[in-house]
């Protein structure tokens, strides 16, 4: 099996193959998990130290926007998954539309995020602001965590949108097709991972009781 996939091609990337490419992507996602893990570690320590402060601070979060964004991201994950099945069934047109939908939802998510952040910053809720420095210590740490974690998550969404955009072009050109779709599949894995991170961020920042 291994030998079949690697026989002497001069073009570098073809040395490996479907399984190798997927292994590589999964390994990368595992590093991402540990990367976010460092932040979850900080969150859990500060939440256990400042439980009451976190509760007060979280009252300021807007559950409605948070929930809407969760639904949007889950739905975008759904369309992403569908787009892969579509390509594999040979329907590139449908797949391209589904990918475009995913991108659109990613953008809406970011726009919501923008208004959310903008509103908070407008009211002086950001690290090191005069308002926050007067409040309890845990409250500021909560918002520091909020900005860093949702910020890094949003950065991943932005990167994801870019990559899906590239895949969209490849799908339309036919470079991604029912015989060769590992790039799209790996992009999907990435997008689902970003979705999964949000699945945890949502209760940790919006549903603190």
């Amino acid at each position: 099996m291994a030998e079949k996939e690697m026989t002497g091609s001069k073009d570098g990337e073809k040395h490996t193959g479907y399984t190798g490419a997927k292994f590589g992507m999964w390994f990368f996602l595992m590093t991402e998990l540990i990367f976010f893990g460092g932040l979850f570690l900080l969150y859990s320590v500060y939440r256990s130290t400042y439980a009451a402060d976190f509760h007060i601070a979280a009252l300021d979060e807007n559950i409605v926007i948070g929930s809407v964004n969760t639904v949007i991201l889950i739905t975008s994950s759904f369309t992403m998954a569908l787009s892969i099945s579509a390509v594999r069934k040979g329907d590139n047109r449908l797949s391209a539309w589904l990918q475009a939908g995913t991108i659109a939802m990613g953008c809406v998510f970011l726009v919501n995020k923008y208004f959310e952040w903008g509103d908070k910053i407008g009211r002086g809720i950001y690290p090191n602001s005069t308002l926050m420095m007067q409040k309890k210590k845990g409250e500021m740490l909560f918002y520091s965590l909020y900005y860093v974690m949702t910020g890094i998550h949003a950065l991943h969404v932005i990167i994801g949108i870019g990559v899906i955009g590239a895949m969209l072009l490849l799908t339309r050109s036919g470079a991604i097709n029912s015989g060769s779709f590992v790039k799209l599949e790996n992009t999907g894995l990435y997008w689902h991972f970003v979705d999964m991170v949000w699945i945890y961020l949502f209760p940790l920042f919006y549903l603190v009781t």
Binding site: F35, G38, M140
Partner: peptide, 29 residues
């Protein structure tokens, strides 16, 4: 499985220096 931890830690040091997040600063809790 280990390197990403230093990545996030060092990123936090940079953010801390620019925005004063307070994660590692005892005066901010």
């Amino acid at each position: 499985l280990a390197t990403p931890t230093i990545a996030i830690t060092l990123l936090l040091v940079i953010l801390e220096r620019f925005f004063g997040l307070g994660f590692f600063d005892p005066s901010k809790g």
